[in-house]
Structures are given as structure tokens and as C-alpha cells.
């Protein structure tokens, strides 16, 4: 547990309080993973100069109502499918003017996996100097909770009342296939790993992509206080692999799960979105195994090196 300090590392520091990236009084639901992510981002960014591009998603609401701004950095709210192209323009002009600005896209899974996929792919192919962060709540939160291609099999959404049948899209596989300098999954339950990745991704050049599993009590029908715990269960069970990919080639597994059946069972039972579809630990197990076989193959690590959950 060395990488999880007191209060899971989420206790506010003085700086988090006095100069937050996400200001107090914002409209996010209690227990929103995106709020925790922005807190971590604040800490990782330190004094770096940032600009934010946010497509239509919950974070576009988070930004607040004109003329107030819940984000403490210059921000542009783009159309739903355009985060990575608007960021391309912002980053290009920063580059032309020799500015050290780090341009960040903060997009939901809908704006990333679905409607913004072409935009994302094109910006990655051009290797634009952008840090693209997808906070994945596995649902269209903004519009009240419809399925996205990031919604896992078995989850109830307002547009899949019997539970989604299809499995989740492999976003990191897609991004790795673009051979971008850096792509990683981020567990908010693993604070040191999260901070390290955010810092690395902020400093790296070219297109960087972070996939963050982002608890959404409103959409997941879970207890707001349980969000980080749910992420931990997803990691422990192997459901959410924590790894990074350099240049689309070098895979590094960051957290070795114990593939705990109990963790998986708890993950499902603590969220009402899984209650009625009949999805069980056994249903999910084969897919988890298949994905981990693939990860082991890609990382070249046949035998787990470290059990650190």
C-alpha cells in the first residue's frame, strides 16, 4: 500500500485549497471521479502553464455559467466532436509563438470513444502536442445516462434498459495503434501512479493520451463515498488494467492485480447499474482473462513480477 498515502492521497493540501484547478462551488455531483482527477491534475501540473479544451460533456457543465469560471485556467468549450481539433489549433499557435503552454483536452467517454473518435484519431496521427485526458464514466452523463461504446457489458443505462450486451471498446489498444508517444490508463485509487503519469504526460511532447476510470455515482447508482473504492476493486479484479504504452510498442503493466473474484463480485454488487442485467462474476471472467493474456503478450511479462494492490 506504499503508493496510497493517508486518505488515499486525496486529502487537500493547502495549495489545493488556495489555488485549485477546479474551484469550490462547482456543480459536479458529490463523489464525481472527474473532480478527483482535476484535483490530481492540479497537483501534477504545479506551475506549468495550462490551457483547457472541453467538449460537450459533464465537464462542460462543471465549467460554470457565464461569466463565472469554475476552472482556474483559460478554457474553451468546444462542440462535442471537436476537442482534439480545437486543441490542435491552440497548441499550434502556442508552438508558433514559442510558448511553453501545455494544452489539455478533458473529454468524456462519449466525446472520445464515440462522436470524437475521428477527431481524436486524426490529432493522434498528426502527433499534435496535446495531452488528451478521457475521464471515462462509462456513460453519457450530461444527457442523463445513455450507453456509450465505453459502457461495459451488463450495465443498465437509460438507452439499454435490459443491460448493455456489447463489451467495452479497447481505447488504449486503439490509441497504441496510432503509435503515439504515450498512452496510459489511470487508476484514481493509485495516487502515486496517477501523479507520476500526469507529470510524465504533462512534460512529454507530441500526442499523449490518458484513460481515467471515473466513478459516477449518479450514473453508476453507487454511493458517492465509494467511488475510489470501486476503482480499487476494478483494478484488483483485473477488470481495469493499469498500464502504459510508449510509442505504441512498449507496454508496461503498472499494477499487478490479484484477479480477486471477491473484488469483482463486490464491484458489481456495489453499483445498482449491474443489478438487473444478470451479469455475474463468471460472465466477466473470460473477457478479463482474454484481455490479460493479450496484455502479457504485449508487455512480454509472462509471469507477474509484483503483486502490489
Amino acid at each position: 500500500m506504499t503508493n496510497e498515502p493517508a486518505l488515499n492521497g486525496m486529502a487537500l493540501t493547502e495549495r489545493d485549497r488556495s489555488e485549485p484547478l477546479l474551484r469550490a462551488g462547482n456543480s459536479n455531483c458529490g463523489g464525481c471521479g472527474m473532480s478527483s482527477l482535476l484535483q490530481m491534475l492540479r497537483r501534477a501540473a504545479a506551475d506549468r502553464e495550462l490551457k483547457l479544451v472541453v467538449p460537450a460533456c459533464c465537464a462542460a457543465v462543471t465549467g460554470g455559467i457565464f461569466p463565472e469560471s469554475a476552472f482556474s485556467i483559460p478554457t474553451i468549450m468546444s462542440t462535442f466532436a471537436s476537442a482534439a481539433s480545437v486543441a490542435t489549433g491552440v497548441a499550434s499557435v502556442a508552438q508558433l509563438n514559442g510558448e511553453p503552454t501545455r494544452v489539455i483536452c478533458l473529454a468524456g467517454d462519449g466525446g472520445t470513444y464515440d462522436i470524437g473518435m475521428g477527431t481524436l484519431s486524426a490529432a493522434a496521427e498528426r502527433n499534435e502536442d496535446i495531452l488528451y485526458i478521457c475521464y471515462d464514466n462509462e456513460i453519457y452523463g450530461n444527457t442523463g445516462g445513455q450507453r456509450s461504446s465505453a459502457t461495459p457489458a451488463g450495465a443498465w443505462t437509460t438507452s439499454t434498459p435490459l443491460g448493455k450486451q456489447k463489451t467495452k471498446k479497447d481505447i488504449l489498444g486503439i490509441m497504441a495503434a496510432h503509435r503515439i508517444p504515450y498512452a496510459a490508463s489511470v487508476s484514481l485509487a493509485h495516487i502515486d501512479d496517477t501523479l507520476r503519469k500526469l507529470q510524465f504526460a504533462l512534460d512529454a511532447r507530441g500526442f499523449r493520451f490518458l484513460h481515467v476510470l471515473s466513478p459516477c455515482p449518479t450514473g453508476w447508482k453507487s454511493e458517492p463515498a465509494m467511488g475510489i473504492e470501486l476503482v480499487r476493486l476494478a483494478v484488483r479484479s483485473g477488470l481495469f488494467p493499469v498500464f502504459e504504452v510508449f510509442d505504441g510498442e512498449r507496454y508496461l503493466i503498472n499494477v499487478e492485480p490479484e484477479f480477486s473474484g471477491e473484488a469483482l463480485m463486490m464491484y458489481l454488487s456495489l453499483q445498482r447499474r449491474f443489478r438487473d442485467s444478470g451479469v455475474t462474476e463468471e460472465n466477466l471472467r473470460p473477457n478479463i482473462e482474454r484481455y490479460w493474456n493479450y496484455l502479457r503478450l504485449m508487455s512480454g511479462r509472462i509471469v507477474p513480477a509484483r503483486r502490489d494492490i
Binding site: I76, S82, S85, V86, G89, G118, T119, R126
Partner: peptide, 24 residues
Amino acid sequence: GKVVRADSEHNAMGICIGASASGA
């Protein structure tokens, strides 16, 4: 100056938006 070869008109305008919003 930079001319970005976009992947669509939607994103061509997206790039112009980002550029113009940055003062170019």
C-alpha cells in the same frame, strides 16, 4: 504560419477555432 491538413471540414473549422481563440 501553419496549415494543418485536417481529417474533415468539421475539424478544419475546429482547428481554425482553436487558432483564432489563441489570437492567430
